Amino acid sequence: MRVFLLLLLLFPVLELFVFVKVSAAIGFFPALLLIIGGSALGLLVMRVAGIATALRARESLQRGELPAEDMFQGLLLAVAGVLLLIPGFISDVLGLICLMPFTRHFAARKLRQRAEAQAMRQRAFQDDPFAARPPEGGHRPNVIEGEYQRRDQ
C-alpha cells in the first residue's frame, strides 16, 4: 500500500519533469500539442475500443462461446485509452505499449494462467477429503420437521 501511495505521489512529479525536458528540447508549444494530441488519441481509442469490444463479445456469444478473451482485450484497450487521455509523456508511452497487439496477447495469456492456477487452488481445497466435519454424535441443531395449520377462532 505504501508503494502505491509513493507511486501516486511520484508519478505527477515524473510527468512534469519529463514535460519540462521535452519542452526544453523541442519547444513548449510543440510539446503541449503532443500532449493534446495524445489526449485526443486516447479519447478516440476509448470510443472505438468500446464499440469493437461490444461487437466481438456479441459475436462470441452468438457462437456459443464465452467472450472472456474479447472482454480482456477490450479492458486493455480501455486502459490504454485512459493512459493516453491522462496528460503526460510517460502515461502516453504506457498507453501506446498497451495498444500493441502482442502486449495485449501476452497480458491475456498471463492473466488466463493466473486465473486457471487460482481455480485449481480453490478446487483443491474444495474437494478436500480431510476437511473438518462434525462428529456423528456431536452437537447438532435441534430441527423438528413437520406441517402446521393455522386455526383462528
Score class of each variant (00 low, 15 high):
residue 4 F to W: 11
residue 5 L to Q: 08
residue 5 L to G: 06
residue 5 L to P: 00
residue 6 L to K: 05
residue 10 L to Y: 03
residue 11 F to P: 05
residue 12 P to C: 07
residue 12 P to K: 03
residue 14 L to P: 00
residue 15 E to R: 01
residue 15 E to Q: 03
residue 17 F to R: 13
residue 18 V to H: 01
residue 20 V to G: 09
residue 21 K to I: 08
residue 24 A to C: 02
residue 27 G to I: 05
residue 27 G to K: 05
residue 27 G to W: 01
residue 28 F to H: 04
residue 28 F to A: 15
residue 29 F to E: 13
residue 29 F to R: 15
residue 30 P to L: 08
residue 30 P to A: 01
residue 31 A to E: 08
residue 32 L to H: 02
residue 35 I to A: 12
residue 36 I to N: 03
residue 36 I to V: 10
residue 37 G to E: 07
residue 39 S to K: 07
residue 39 S to T: 12
residue 41 L to I: 07
residue 41 L to K: 02
residue 42 G to N: 11
residue 42 G to Q: 00
residue 43 L to V: 06
residue 44 L to N: 06
residue 45 V to L: 15
residue 46 M to T: 14
residue 48 V to M: 13
residue 51 I to P: 06
residue 51 I to R: 13
residue 51 I to Q: 12
residue 53 T to D: 04
residue 53 T to M: 13
residue 54 A to V: 06
residue 54 A to R: 05
residue 55 L to N: 13
residue 55 L to I: 06
residue 55 L to C: 10
residue 56 R to N: 14
residue 56 R to L: 07
residue 56 R to K: 15
residue 57 A to M: 09
residue 57 A to D: 05
residue 57 A to C: 15
residue 58 R to H: 07
residue 58 R to Y: 04
residue 59 E to C: 03
residue 60 S to P: 02
residue 61 L to Y: 05
residue 61 L to W: 04
residue 64 G to Y: 02
residue 65 E to K: 09
residue 66 L to V: 09
residue 66 L to Y: 11
residue 67 P to M: 08
residue 68 A to P: 02
residue 69 E to V: 11
residue 69 E to I: 13
residue 72 F to I: 13
residue 72 F to Q: 14
residue 73 Q to W: 14
residue 73 Q to R: 15
residue 74 G to H: 04
residue 74 G to S: 10
residue 75 L to H: 08
residue 75 L to T: 14
residue 76 L to I: 12
residue 77 L to A: 15
residue 77 L to R: 15
residue 78 A to S: 09
residue 78 A to I: 06
residue 78 A to G: 11
residue 78 A to Q: 10
residue 79 V to M: 12
residue 80 A to Y: 05
residue 81 G to Q: 06
residue 82 V to N: 00
residue 83 L to I: 03
residue 83 L to T: 01
residue 83 L to F: 07
residue 84 L to W: 01
residue 85 L to K: 04
residue 86 I to G: 01
residue 88 G to M: 01
residue 88 G to W: 02
residue 89 F to L: 00
residue 89 F to P: 01
residue 89 F to G: 00
residue 94 L to R: 00
residue 94 L to Y: 02
residue 95 G to H: 03
residue 96 L to C: 05
residue 97 I to H: 03
residue 99 L to A: 08
residue 100 M to I: 14
residue 101 P to C: 07
residue 103 T to Y: 02
residue 103 T to I: 10
residue 104 R to S: 11
residue 105 H to P: 04
residue 107 A to P: 03
residue 107 A to V: 13
